[in-house]
Design a protein around this nucleic acid. Structure first.
Lengths: 246, 246
DNA sequence: GAGTGGTCTAGACCACGGT
DNA sequence: CCGTGGTCTAGACCACTCC
């Protein structure tokens, strides 16, 4: 799985991290890279685009491809694909995780639920309400709905382990993308009951809508998690022109 | 500023939102679009890439470009460029905003500060500590550091208004990108003093490192904000292959 | 004006999905 | 097998930065 543009991307990435361009803080010009890698300009540009998405470089017309200074933030950098994008602030070493199932049931989406999770009224769904324990502390509370028509054969045992493993290994679709809303809210009665909040009376909330590669929304999960344990990292660019006007 | 690929992008975006493709939930094939817009395939692919970045479509090799189902999340969708990416949950209508300056000073980065904000030791910086009021409520506390060598001539009056307007109108660089860490933390003593937390004892925290288009880190801001008022929205894709191994 | 990245063209071949 | 998107080439012209 190593395309030409990926090889070039990885090569340049390593060189940037190793500090080879620290004198100029710029990449060589596209023309130079074309010659060096004996490839076309489009392929070079594709590689540079990858570096850009990583937050390593930024291109300016007429000036060149500038290398962005490093920050402490980079130490925490990662890509978030789904709810696991919530990276534990504590190191992963010596972490004991477990899942406790509060509810696992099958039900039909009514009007109220439909408004909340954007599934059509009448859709049959699996509802899984789970607590995530880290080192015996209840740090996360996941409330998930899966479309039965897509995630066939889901059951309590699978929910206790990894639903995503089950999908990857047994079902005929792939997970393509997700849309996420992140908030901070006052803790409600359930939060204080099921999460180890300690003295804290607020939670982080992530609402996550997940899509199959057929374009179908198949999962909606609301995660409520305790403070001081998780972080989300992202890289953002001033959209040079395009504006969102949905 | 309307390139060909942008025109096509906007056209297709409108058609998707208008539901023209709702029967198949797929875009026409690239070949069809090439003919329709009388352009090259690369340009069509560029337009589709824009739609993809908006979270509207997802391409699958051999199958086509699938349109993603809509969700309630889309109602809140927006691009976050810097700290303003914290979108107020309350509507923007009838909102009175104000800024109160707690501290404005010039200082030199020492070792402790350097570790926190990734500016080199000895760098001269402006330090602005500001409270954002929305409808007379203290909802956000910004603690910002700007490199003096880059943001020349910053002063208290400018900090009271918009530093970004000042940069755009008076300085010779542009803002390129930012890296962000988002967390939830227990409120500290200062938080309870300066923010209208009410009964809440936690805050949302955004750490933001901002870059010029010369690749220079020039601003570090830590925003601490009250619960229940702000949300961050994002679109994420399963990186088909590329993995981050910095 | 010289050099740089941004847009665009018109092809080619490959890998995967569905029939 | 055919149709689809993914990769890649080898050019062209334009817009911007910087000297």
């Amino acid at each position: 799985m190593d395309n030409k543009f990926e090889i070039i991307y990885k090569t340049l990435k390593k060189e940037i991290i190793d500090g080879i361009y620290n004198d100029t803080m710029k990449l060589p010009t596209e023309a130079v890279l074309v010659k060096r890698f004996d490839t076309s300009r489009n392929t070079i540009r594709r590689s540079i685009q990858c570096l850009n998405e990583d937050g390593l470089v930024y291109s300016v017309k007429g000036r060149g491809v500038v290398i962005l200074e490093n920050t402490r933030v980079d130490e925490m950098f990662f890509k978030m694909g789904n709810f696991q994008g919530l990276k534990a602030l504590s190191s992963y070493a010596n972490v004991k995780t477990a899942t406790k199932i509060r509810v696992f049931e099958e039900l039909t989406v009514d009007e109220k639920l439909s408004k909340r999770i954007s599934f059509p009224i009448g859709e049959r769904v699996f509802h899984a309400d789970r607590i995530r324990l880290i080192n015996d502390r209840a740090t996360m509370h996941d409330n998930s709905y899966f479309k039965k028509s897509i995630v066939k054969g889901l059951n309590k045992d699978i929910a206790k382990e990894s639903i995503y493993n089950y999908i990857n290994e047994n079902l005929d679709f792939n997970i393509a993308a997700s849309k996420t809303v992140t908030k901070v809210e006052s803790a409600n009665k359930i939060d204080s009951e099921v999460l180890d909040l300690g003295k804290n009376n607020c939670v982080g909330v992530v609402e996550n809508a997940v899509y199959t590669d057929m374009g179908k929304l198949f999962e909606h999960t609301t995660i409520r998690y305790i403070p001081n344990e998780y972080a989300i990292v992202s890289f953002n660019q001033s959209d040079k022109d395009r504006v969102d006007h949905l």
